[in-house]
Design a protein around this nucleic acid. Structure first.
Length: 894
RNA sequence: GGGCGAAUAGCUCAGUCGGUUCAGAGCGCCUGCCUUACACGCAGGAGGCCGGGGGUUCGAAUCCCUCUUCGCCCACCA
C-alpha cells in the first residue's frame, strides 16, 4: 500500500504549474542533443506580438504540442520553435489607438519616437501570448524563441530583399493597388479581403455626348464619387448598340471636361448599360484600359479617403475636384455628387445592387483602389518550384483536398506588393542618391552614394509583415549564416496551421524555402479547421462569441481544454464549441481526467513499493482477464500509434480513452479486484496503467505526468514527457483471450440486463445458470466463475451443457422468489434461427458475388486489384459460411 | 460566376475498400444504484426513412446523377 492519499477529485490547478516548471527546469523541451537521434521540427505559426490567446490558437498550438510530444517520446530530437511576429499593421494600429487616447497621432510623435513607443509596448506586452501557451502546456523550446524584428532575423529579411533585388525580382510598379485609407498604407491582394455580399446601389448617370448619335449616354457605377477621375467612357467593340458612339466625345458632368468614348474588350456589354466610365487611377480594371489607351490617370481622392487633388507620389493638380467637395469624406462625397447630378437632371435612376466590398484585413475599412508606386516581387519564378514540389509529392497537404486550392493560387499567382506606408516594420533597404539618382538595395546602410558619393536617402516605407514571416522556417535558425541549428533542423517536418493563411504564409514559406535554400521548409502541411460557435460562426472578438482558453483552464484544467480540442475534431473539420455552455463543452475532458485520476488512485493504493516488470511474467499462464487486457493494450498501442502517424489525432485520443475507461477501468479493474494480492495481477495492472499514461501523454500531459511519476519503481528524476513511447515489442496479442473474454462480458451483461429488467434488488441473493453453447465457451465461462459472480452480483452460478439459456433466480428480501430467464443469443432455438438467417444472407451475398466473378465483362473491365479484392472477399465469405454451417451442426439444429 | 466541403440520435460529431466488427460515441434524457478508485461515478434503457428524389448493384449511410439547405475559398462585371 502506498503511504500517500490522493483526493477523490483531480484538481488541475494544484499540479499544472508545478509540473510545467519541472519540465522547463529539466530542459525537457529542448531537442535531445544526441546526434544519432533523428530530428523532428515544427516551427510555430508566430502569433502577433499584440495577440492574446484565443481558441483558434489554442487548437493550433495544442495540435502542435501533441505531435511534438509524440515524436519526442518516440526518441526523436524534437524541436518546437516558438516566437512572435511583429505584425506591421496590426501592431501599429494598436499603438496608434493607445496614443490616440492621449490625444496624439503618430505624426505628432514623429517616426522615430513612434517606433520607440511601439518597441516599448512590445517589450511590455509582447510575451503575453507565449506565456499563455505555457498555461495550456505547450512544450516549445523557449530558449530558441524568435521575434521577426530581432536583429539577426532582420538581417535575414534584408538579405532576402537584396538577393531578390539582385536577381531582378523586385521592381517598382506604378499601378492601382488596394489602399486602406485608415491605415494609410497599401495592401497586398491577400490583405484586402472580399467580405460578405452586401446590398448597395447602382447609380445610372447620364454623360452628355457631343455630336453623338444620341445627346447623352448612361453609365452605371457603384462609386459615383470616382467619376471626378474619369478620363474616358468605354464600350465593348462588338457592342452594336453603342458602336456609333466610339470616337465621339462625352462631357464629364460636374467637372465639365471632354472625355473620349473608346472601345475596349474588357467591357462587358451585358452589365449595366454597356457604357463604362473609366477611372484609371481608382479602379484596377480601368487602369488596364487606361494603359491600353494611354489615358490620363488623375487621382481625385487623398490618401485619407477624402476628396481632393492628391499630392506627392507622382500625382498632379488637375482641377477636377470642385471646391464644395474638397476635403469631404468619400462616402459623404458620394451623396453630394448624387445630389448634384440629380439637380442637373443627370441621374437617371438608382437600382439596388449586390456586390462584395474588399476590406482591410486589419481594420475592416473599405479598401480603395488607388494608383500609386509600390515595390513588387515577381512571383512566377518563385511559384514554379513550390508548385513542382507539390506535384512531385515533396510537400504534402493534409487533408489533401486543399491541394487544389494551393495549386490554383500558385498557377494564377500575381506579383506581390511588399511595400507598406507604415513605420513599424523592416525598413525597405533601397537607397536613392539625391545627386545622381542611382538607386540600389544594400545589405548595409551606405553613408553616401556608391557611384558619385552624393547624399543618399532610404526608402521611407517598410516591408509587408509577411515578407518577414515567409522566412520563418530558416531565419529562425540563423540563416543566412550556416549555423549548426540550420544544418541540423532544416528542413523541418510538419507545419500546423489554419487554411486561412495558406496563401499569406504557407505557400510563400514554401517558395522561400526552395528559392533561398533549395530545400522544402517542411514535408507536411497539416491544416486544421476553424473554431466556431453553435451557430457555426467563426469565433471572434468582435462578435463576442469567443471562449477564453484561460477561462477554460481555470475552470476545468488545461487537459480538459486539450482533450476537447483534440478529441472533438476530426481531420480537417471545424470545431464547434458552445461559448454559452462551457460546462457541456468541456465536461467530457474534465470527466476523463478525473477518471484517469481515480484509476490512478485505485492502482496506486493497491500496488506495493515494487512491482514485477511485465517482462518477467509468463503472460501465457495468466488468467483470461489478464491476457485479454494485455492483448487489448497491445492493439491500442498499435492503433494509437498509427493514428498519430496519420494525423488522426482524434482517433488516437478516443482509442486510448476507450481502453482506459471502457476496457481497463470498467472491466479489468473490476475483474482483478479479488486477486489484487497476486504479484502477476499487480504487474499487469501497473503495466497497463503505465502504458496508457504514455499513450495519453501527448493529449493530456499534465495529469498523465502527475500520475506516472507516482507509479512504483519510479526514480525521482524520471519524467513521462521524455519517457519512451510504448513499443510494440512485447508479444501480448492473444487471439484466444480476445475471443473468450467477450463471452464473459456477454454473460455478465446478460445477467445485468435481467436484473434491471426484472428489477432484482441489488441486495437480493441471485442464482444464475449459464448454458454455454460450445466447449470453448464452457471452459472460458467456468474459468471466470468468480468474475461473473462478482460483476453480475450473483450468489450462485451453475453450468449446464444441455440447454442454451441464461437464467437467473432471485430471492428477494421479503422472501419471495423471482426466476428470470434470458432467451437471447445463447438460446439454442433463437441461436439456430439467428445463425440460419445469417447463413441465408451470406448465401445470397455469396451467390451475387459469384455471379459477379463469373461475369466476363467484370473480369475484363475491372482493374486487377479490384478483381483480386473481390476474390479475396469471396474466399473469406466461403470460410465464414463453412464456420456458420459447422456451428449450426454442432448446435444440432437442422 | 467558378471551385471545395458539409447534411447521420434532442445537441456536438465518428463511420476507411459497398456486405456481421454498420446504425456508433460523447453530452443530454429515463430507471435503478453512495457495489472497499471515481455521483466529474456505476449498471441498465429509450431515442435514427443516415437531408429529398432518382439511378448503379444480389446488396447503398457508403458509389453516380439531381434537388434543397448551410459553410468556405477563388474571380477586375464597373
Amino acid at each position: 500500500m502506498a503511504d500517500f492519499e490522493l483526493p477523490p477529485q483531480y484538481a488541475p490547478q494544484d499540479v499544472e504549474r508545478g509540473l510545467y516548471r519541472r519540465w522547463v527546469d529539466r530542459g525537457a523541451f529542448a531537442p535531445n542533443p544526441d546526434p544519432r537521434r533523428e530530428p523532428y521540427v515544427i516551427v510555430i505559426p508566430p502569433p502577433n506580438v499584440t495577440a492574446v490567446l484565443h481558441m483558434g490558437q489554442g487548437l493550433n498550438n495544442v495540435t502542435q504540442d501533441v505531435l511534438i510530444r509524440f515524436e519526442r517520446m518516440r526518441s526523436r530530437a524534437a524541436l518546437w520553435l516558438p516566437g512572435t511576429d511583429h505584425a506591421g499593421i496590426a501592431t501599429q494600429n494598436v499603438v496608434e489607438r493607445i496614443i490616440a487616447t492621449e490625444g496624439k497621432s503618430r505624426f505628432d510623435l514623429g517616426r522615430e519616437r513612434f517606433v520607440e513607443r511601439v518597441w516599448a509596448f512590445v517589450r511590455d506586452t509582447g510575451n503575453t501570448i507565449l506565456e499563455q501557451l505555457k498555461v495550456i502546456g505547450c512544450s516549445c523550446d523557449w530558449s530558441r524563441t524568435r521575434f521577426t524584428l530581432d536583429p539577426e532575423y532582420s538581417r535575414a529579411v534584408r538579405e532576402v530583399f537584396v538577393r531578390l533585388w539582385e536577381e531582378g525580382l523586385i521592381y517598382r510598379g506604378h499601378r492601382v493597388i488596394h489602399w486602406c485609407s485608415r491605415c494609410l498604407t497599401a495592401l497586398s491582394d491577400e490583405e484586402a479581403e472580399a467580405g460578405e455580399s452586401e446590398t448597395g446601389k447602382l447609380y445610372y448617370i447620364r454623360y452628355p455626348v457631343e455630336n453623338g448619335p444620341f445627346p447623352y449616354l448612361t453609365v452605371a457605377t457603384t462609386r459615383p464619387e470616382t467619376m471626378l477621375g474619369d478620363t474616358a467612357v468605354a464600350v465593348n467593340p462588338n457592342d452594336a448598340r453603342h458602336r456609333a458612339f466610339v470616337g465621339k466625345t462625352a462631357r464629364l458632368p460636374i467637372v465639365d471636361i471632354p472625355i473620349p468614348i473608346i472601345a475596349d474588350e474588357a467591357v462587358d456589354p451585358l452589365f449595366g448599360t454597356g457604357f463604362v466610365k473609366v477611372t484609371p487611377a481608382h479602379d484596377a480594371a480601368d487602369f488596364e484600359i487606361g494603359v491600353r489607351h494611354k489615358l490620363d490617370m488623375p487621382l481625385v481622392m487623398r490618401e485619407g479617403g477624402t476628396m481632393g487633388e492628391a499630392t506627392g507620389n507622382g500625382e498632379r493638380e488637375t482641377g477636377r475636384v470642385p471646391k464644395e467637395l474638397e476635403g469631404l469624406d468619400r462616402f459623404q462625397a458620394r451623396e453630394r455628387i448624387v445630389a448634384m447630378l440629380r439637380e442637373r437632371g443627370l441621374l437617371e435612376k438608382i437600382e439596388p445592387h449586390s456586390y462584395s466590398l474588399r476590406r482591410c484585413y486589419r481594420c475592416d475599412t473599405v479598401v480603395e483602389p488607388r494608383l500609386s508606386d509600390q515595390w513588387f516581387v515577381k512571383m512566377k519564378p518563385l511559384a514554379e518550384p513550390a508548385l513542382r514540389a507539390y506535384h512531385e509529392g515533396e510537400i504534402r497537404l493534409v487533408p489533401e483536398r486543399w491541394g487544389a486550392t494551393y495549386e490554383h493560387w500558385l498557377e494564377n499567382i500575381r506579383d506581390w506588393n511588399i511595400s507598406r506606408q507604415l513605420w513599424w516594420g523592416h525598413r525597405i533597404p533601397v537607397f536613392t542618391c539625391a545627386a545622381c539618382g542611382e538607386q540600389w538595395a544594400d545589405r548595409q546602410d551606405p553613408a553616401s552614394c556608391r557611384r558619385c558619393g552624393g547624399t543618399v536617402e532610404q526608402d521611407p516605407d517598410v516591408l509587408d509583415t509577411w515578407f518577414s514571416s515567409w522566412l520563418w522556417p530558416f531565419a529562425t535558425l540563423g540563416w543566412p549564416d550556416q549555423t549548426p541549428d540550420l544544418r541540423r533542423y532544416y528542413p523541418g517536418h510538419t507545419l500546423v496551421t489554419a487554411p486561412e493563411i495558406l496563401f499569406f504564409w504557407v505557400a510563400r514559406m514554401i517558395m522561400a524555402g526552395y528559392h533561398f535554400l533549395g530545400k522544402r521548409p517542411f514535408a507536411t502541411v497539416y491544416l486544421h479547421g476553424t473554431v466556431r460557435d453553435t451557430q457555426h460562426r467563426k469565433m471572434s472578438k468582435s462578435l463576442g462569441n469567443g471562449i477564453d482558453p484561460l477561462d477554460v483552464v481555470r475552470l476545468f484544467g488545461a487537459d480538459a481544454l486539450r482533450w476537447t480540442a483534440i478529441a472533438g475534431i476530426s481531420l480537417g473539420s471545424d470545431l464547434t464549441l458552445d461559448p454559452n455552455d462551457l460546462d457541456t463543452t468541456f465536461a467530457p475532458g474534465r470527466n476523463f481526467a478525473n477518471k484517469l485520476w481515480n484509476i490512478g488512485r485505485f492502482v496506486l493504493a493497491q500496488l506495493p513499493e515494487s512491482v514485477q516488470p511485465i517482462e518477467s511474467i509468463d503472460v501465457k499462464t495468466l488468467p483470461l482477464a489478464d491476457r485479454w487486457i494485455l492483448s487489448r493494450l497491445q492493439a491500442t498501442v498499435a492503433e494509437a500509434t498509427r493514428s498519430l502517424e496519420q494525423f488522426r489525432l482524434d482517433e488516437a485520443a478516443k482509442r486510448c480513452f476507450e481502453f482506459a475507461w471502457k476496457e481497463l477501468a470498467d472491466w479489468y479493474v473490476e475483474a482483478v479486484k479479488p486477486r489484487l494480492s497476486a504479484a502477476a495481477a499487480q504487474a499487469v495492472l501497473a503495466y497497463c496503467f503505465d502504458t496508457v499514461l504514455r499513450l495519453l501523454h501527448p493529449v493530456v500531459p499534465f495529469i498523465t505526468e502527475e500520475l506516472w511519476q507516482k507509479l512504483p519503481g519510479r526514480k525521482p528524476d524520471e519524467l513521462l514527457i521524455v519517457a519512451a513511447w510504448p513499443p510494440p515489442q512485447l508479444e501480448l496479442a492473444d487471439a484466444q483471450a480476445d475471443q473468450e473474454f467477450p463471452l464473459v462480458q456477454e454473460a455478465i451483461s446478460s445477467i445485468r440486463m435481467l436484473r434491471a429488467e426484472y428489477r432484482v434488488p441489488p441486495k437480493a441473493r441471485l442464482r444464475a445458470s449459464l448454458w454455454p453453447r460450445t466447449e470453448r465457451a464452457r471452459q472460458a465461462l467456468s474459468g471466470e466463475r468468480e468474475t461473473i459472480l462478482r460483476l453480475a452480483q450473483l450468489s450462485e452460478l451453475a453450468f449446464d451443457g444441455k440447454r442454451a439459456t441464461v437464467g437467473a433466480h432471485a430471492v428477494l428480501a421479503d422472501g419471495s422468489e423471482v426466476f428470470v430467464a434470458l432467451e437471447g443469443e445463447i438460446d439454442v432455438q433463437r441461436e439456430c434461427g439467428r445463425l440460419s438467417g445469417e447463413l441465408a444472407r451470406l448465401d445470397r451475398q455469396l451467390s451475387g458475388l459469384e455471379a459477379k466473378l463469373a461475369n466476363q465483362n467484370f473480369i475484363a473491365r475491372a482493374p486487377g486489384e479490384v478483381v483480386a479484392r473481390e476474390r479475396e472477399k469471396e474466399r473469406g465469405w466461403r470460410d465464414q459460411r463453412q464456420a456458420l454451417a459447422d456451428k449450426l451442426k454442432s448446435l444440432g439444429c437442422s
